[in-house]
Simulated assay, not measured.
Amino acid sequence: MSQRDNYRHFLPLPTRWKDNDIYGHVNNVEYYSYFDTVINTYLILEGGLDIHAGVVIGVCAESHCKFLGELAFPETIEAGLRVEHLGNSSVRYGIGLFRPGRDTPAAEGWFVHVFVDRAERRPTPLPDTMRAALEKLRATP
């Protein structure tokens, strides 16, 4: 299990009423939405990703989540992000979902993006601006 200091970037994410399931905690499918949100917010704000008109887009090739503790509405969680592998056209992120002030995650996982040409849907090299932003998140071996 990773600790808080293994992550390079954090984004506060408020849970929503709809996130809870009948058992009173955040439903498992919502964790993947939190993963998507921390990744894409970073790419848009720091990496120059243009989700509406950019030539390059990211598609999810793989994802995984390990549930270690419950989250529930109303909480604001802190989504930690790091880059575990940076390839020519792909990135593997590590994500940790933390309760404020906690050093161990309530959930952790990974997510692989493959960047493709929007029109052709063929892998394409990461743009320089995005690569530079992702380098800042590279995990220390």
Rank of each mutant, 00 (worst) to 15 (best):
T76P: 11
V83F: 11
M130T: 00
N28P: 03
K18V: 00
M130K: 02
E70N: 15
I57F: 01
S90K: 10
L126G: 03
V116T: 00
R102Y: 13
A106Q: 10
E75L: 14
K136V: 00
H64D: 14
D21I: 00
H25E: 04
E46D: 12
F111D: 00
D128F: 02
H52Y: 10
R4E: 08
R121V: 09
E62Y: 09
K18F: 03
I95V: 14
K136F: 09
A107P: 01
R82C: 11
L126E: 02
G101N: 13
L11N: 04
G54S: 05
G47V: 01
A79P: 06
G94L: 07
H52G: 08
R82T: 14
G109Q: 05
S90V: 09
W110V: 03
L97S: 04
P105E: 05
P100A: 12
N27W: 10
R121E: 08
M1V: 11
L81A: 13
Y34L: 06
I77L: 14
G58N: 01
N28H: 09
E120R: 11
G87R: 05
V112R: 01
R99E: 09
S2I: 03
G94N: 06
G101R: 08
F67Q: 10
Y7T: 03
Y32F: 13
L81D: 08
T41R: 02
L45E: 14
E84L: 12
H25A: 05
P127F: 05
I22E: 09
F67Y: 15
L49Y: 05
P74H: 14
A79H: 11
